[in-house]
């Protein structure tokens, strides 16, 4: 793995390796000394062209816990606001010797361009691009689902060994809300599918994108019927992204109150779910719009745990992208190390 750009091109064994590594990283985060020397001397640049608090802080925490140096670069108040192009920004970062670039951009495909245009030789991690992908969010969601439900075909497995090594075969996940503007939904649909889970998108027709019928998932316009009849193991509520709705909220649904009545998760809908099911939200939540305080604060909600798992998943991503020789990414990690290391002369 050279870059982490999309969950659609992650193979199943790569995804499980990421989740298993995240489990080991999470174990180190309960220690008194949380810092590991693993990426000492490497530089991680957080390149954020769009506002973000939790993703940026999560990546920054992850990099610092691995002893990497972190440089935060946000478009506001930087050379980008003076009109610098993505290419020139990338060349600047290259000249500064960045080893990894975590990029969030309002344009779908910007991280791909950064990774493949030849401007940079750093590893590129997509931290959300437009309405395209948000791979680390999907990975932390999958990790959270696996911790609670994984390995037993949707059955119960709380606690225990956290499902290390398992996929999500048979787990049913409902993703509810503003799918149209959601890179989280897109990233999750493909990753959960790769891991063997079944996904149903629940959304008003106006908030489902054109072409959704070609995605590897089912769709529904009826939240009550999906919860009651399909009995999902996990319900992922999406934020209504009002800042992306150019005409204001009214352009996609008649009123916030009507949206809440039809697609909001409240105590009544929570009671329709099976007893082992979990409630997720990528945050930040609009309490009272897509999720009620009762649902958000219930003991089924794993929303705060998702944030903690995000650090572990991002540590795993940085570790897997930045350790190891760049040319040897295809060699399985289980190969025994040669006794007289012939790779030493060719190291970075």
């Amino acid at each position: 793995m050279r870059h982490l750009l999309s969950t659609a091109d992650l193979a199943k064994d790569e995804a499980i390796e990421l989740l298993d590594t995240a489990a080991q990283m999470a174990a180190t985060q309960s220690r008194e000394i949380k810092k590991l020397p693993t990426l000492r001397g490497r530089t991680v640049v957080n390149l954020f062209f769009e506002d973000s608090t939790r993703t940026r802080i999560s990546f920054e925490t992850a990099a610092k816990r691995l002893s990497a140096d972190v440089i935060n670069f946000s478009a506001k108040g930087s050379s980008v606001s003076k009109g610098e192009s993505l290419k020139d920004t990338a060349l600047t970062l290259h000249a500064m010797g960045a080893d990894a670039v975590v990029v969030r951009h309002w344009a779908s495909g910007a991280p791909y361009q950064l990774a493949h245009a030849g401007w940079l030789d750093a590893a590129v991690l997509n931290a959300g691009d437009g309405t395209h992908m948000h791979p680390t969010q999907a990975l932390l969601d999958a990790y959270t689902i696996r911790r609670h439900l994984g390995g037993h075909g949707g059955g119960l497995r709380r606690g225990g060994d956290d499902g290390v090594g398992a996929d999500l075969a048979g787990v049913k996940v409902a993703i509810v809300g503003d799918v149209l503007h959601s890179r989280v939904a897109r990233a999750n649909v493909w990753l959960l599918r790769t891991l063997g889970a079944e996904v149903t998108l629940v959304s008003p027709p106006t908030l489902l994108p054109v072409g959704v019928e070609s995605w590897p998932c089912r769709t529904s316009y009826d939240l009550d019927a999906t919860l009651a009849d399909w009995q999902p193991d996990a319900v992922m509520m999406l934020r209504v992204q009002r800042e992306r709705m150019s005409g204001g909220a009214g352009a996609f649904f008649p009123s916030p109150l009507e949206y809440t009545r039809y697609f909001g998760l409240d105590g009544r809908r929570l009671a329709l779910l099976p007893a082992h099911s979990i409630v997720m939200h990528p945050g930040p939540m609009n309490r009272g719009l897509e999720i009620s305080a009762e649902a958000a604060d219930s003991d089924r909600a794993v929303i705060v745990e998702q944030v903690a798992n995000g650090v572990a998943v991002r540590m795993a991503s940085l570790y897997l992208l930045l350790s190891g020789t760049a040319s040897s990414a295809a060699v399985p990690a289980s190969l025994p190390a040669p006794v007289s290391s012939t790779t030493e002369g060719t190291a970075l």
Binding site: E17, D20, T21, Q24, M25, A27, T28, T38, A316, Y319, L320, S323, G324, T325, S328, A329, V331, P332, A333, S334, L335, A337, S341, T343, E344, A347, L348
Partner: peptide, 13 residues
């Protein structure tokens, strides 16, 4: 030697 070897899987502690 993490940068001189292929990526190693992290084990259990």
């Amino acid at each position: 030697d993490l940068r001189r070897q292929p990526t190693r899987a992290v084990g259990v502690t």
